[in-house]
Amino acid sequence: MSDKVRAKKHLGQHFLKDENVAQRIADTLTLNGYKNVLEIGPGMGVLTKYLLKKPIATYVCEIDTESVVYLQAHYLQLSERILEEDFLKYDLKKTFHDESFAIIGNFPYNISTQIVFKTLEMRDQIPEFSGMFQKEVAQRICAPHGNKTYGILSVLTQAFYDAEYLFTVPPDVFNPPPKVDSGVMRLIRKENFTLPCNEKLFFRVVKTAFQQRRKTLRNSLKTFNLSNNLKEDAIFGLRPEQVSVQGFVDLTIKIANDAI
């Protein structure tokens, strides 16, 4: 058995080799409101070893068999808490039941946005989420309205979490180095993370608005068959990136009332 795991392109693996960066990512956890943390894609455990020093139960989710064998050999205290699973398909309730847990990781770029969407679906159990993305994706998640990168991911995430871009990581701290910079960001769930509107409708309004992001809401939301009276509202003259999260909540309430 080789003492190193080969990075596999199809899994989007770029192994972090810088201990300082690993420590900094582990230290983004506030440890508030949960006793468990799940690391996604631990690889050879460079981040894992810093998580194991914290007063928290560390679980790892790894789809790569070679990495799992490596972790079992080098991190004996993890043995019962290695989930050899595809994070996107695995039912996390099998492991955590109804307990809260944080998510952390040096996320594979090819599935990073899907990881965020799954977190949003499980937001009642995930008070905190932090980790490394492609820099542009991390910036997009944290972008304020009015910013050209503000989009579906920004609005849906910031509806339930406070998002903060923490620091940038250059390609040379990885093996193999990716072609882009990486960015570490953190999400801390809002104290009140239920929306005062129909959440399914909210998701639909946001996604429909941004599908034609250059158009005003009056044009992009035509499929909702809104009354002429409602379409006179000033918000319909705006393009979606000009509308804050609260603005989309208010808009969803107006659309729901318009249908009555």
Rank of each mutant, 00 (worst) to 15 (best):
G247I: 11
R239M: 13
P42L: 01
C142A: 12
E80I: 04
I152D: 06
D250E: 15
E164P: 02
R140Y: 02
I63P: 00
Q242G: 03
T58S: 15
G33N: 13
H145Q: 09
K9H: 07
A22V: 07
N36G: 06
K222Q: 15
I141C: 10
V68W: 06
P55L: 03
T252P: 02
K222Y: 13
T194D: 15
D98H: 10
L47R: 01
L153A: 10
K35M: 04
N198I: 01
Q13M: 02
K49P: 03
N36R: 14
V69Y: 03
D124C: 11
R81F: 14
V116T: 11
F224R: 01
E232K: 14
G41M: 09
R24N: 13
G43H: 01
F15V: 00
V21N: 10
C142M: 03
F210C: 07
V184P: 00
K200E: 15
G151P: 09
N110I: 10
F202R: 13
E84A: 07
G12Q: 01
T48W: 12
G12N: 05
S100Y: 11
V46H: 07
S67I: 00
T58D: 11
K254N: 14
E241A: 08
I111F: 02
F236C: 12
A259T: 15
V60P: 03
P240G: 08
T194P: 02
P108M: 12
V169S: 00
H14V: 02
V155S: 12
T157I: 08
G43D: 04
N219H: 14
D181N: 06
V5N: 01
L71K: 01
T28Q: 15
F210T: 01
D258T: 08
Q246F: 11
D91G: 04
G151V: 12
N36D: 14
L251C: 15
F174D: 00
T58Q: 12
L78T: 00
R186C: 01
I63T: 09
R214N: 14
L47C: 05
Y150T: 03
S100I: 05
L195H: 08
Y161D: 09
K118F: 10
T149A: 13
Y50V: 08
S112F: 08
A256T: 08
G237K: 09
Y50Q: 12
R218V: 06
Q13F: 01
G131L: 02
Q72I: 00
G105L: 09
V245C: 10
K8E: 01
D3S: 05
C197W: 06
A143N: 07
V46D: 04
D233W: 03
V205Y: 14
A57Q: 09
K215C: 11
E66G: 04
N192C: 13
S244F: 05
E121M: 12
L88W: 08
L251P: 10
D181R: 00
